[in-house]
């Protein structure tokens, strides 16, 4: 679970940063200054990084036994600029939360 969470957090951070670059730098350059070079280079890269994000989110959701709704929400959160960072924090909190109904089994009688 820890490794899956780390994988998810790393790719979530990368996707979040690339998405912000795309929205904050690429889009104004393309639509205000008619210079689409940033969008054309970062855009497809972000697309494929997002695919990796989806895979990592799916992997984590299976390991953590999330309900389907939460998995889909986390996947969608990666598409919204800035929200992806919030989602990553929420996910980390969910996974780090103490597991319910798992009391330790005493060894000695």
């Amino acid at each position: 679970m820890g490794a899956a969470l780390t994988r998810y957090r790393v790719i979530a951070w990368i996707v979040g940063v690339v998405l912000i670059l795309l929205v904050v730098i690429g889009m104004p350059l393309k639509y205000a200054f008619d210079n689409p070079v940033v969008v054309e280079t970062i855009g497809p890269a972000h697309g494929f990084l997002y695919m990796i994000y989806l895979v990592a989110a799916f992997d984590l959701s299976r390991r953590a036994d999330w309900p389907l709704k939460r998995m889909l929400l986390v996947m969608l959160a990666g598409t919204v600029p800035f929200v992806s960072f919030y989602a990553e924090r929420r996910v980390s909190a969910w996974v780090a939360a103490p597991q319910e109904a798992r009391t330790p089994e005493p060894v000695a009688h």
Partner: peptide, 8 residues
């Protein structure tokens, strides 16, 4: 379950 250390 998580292994737990218990004094025997």
């Amino acid at each position: 379950r998580r292994p737990v250390r218990v004094s025997r």
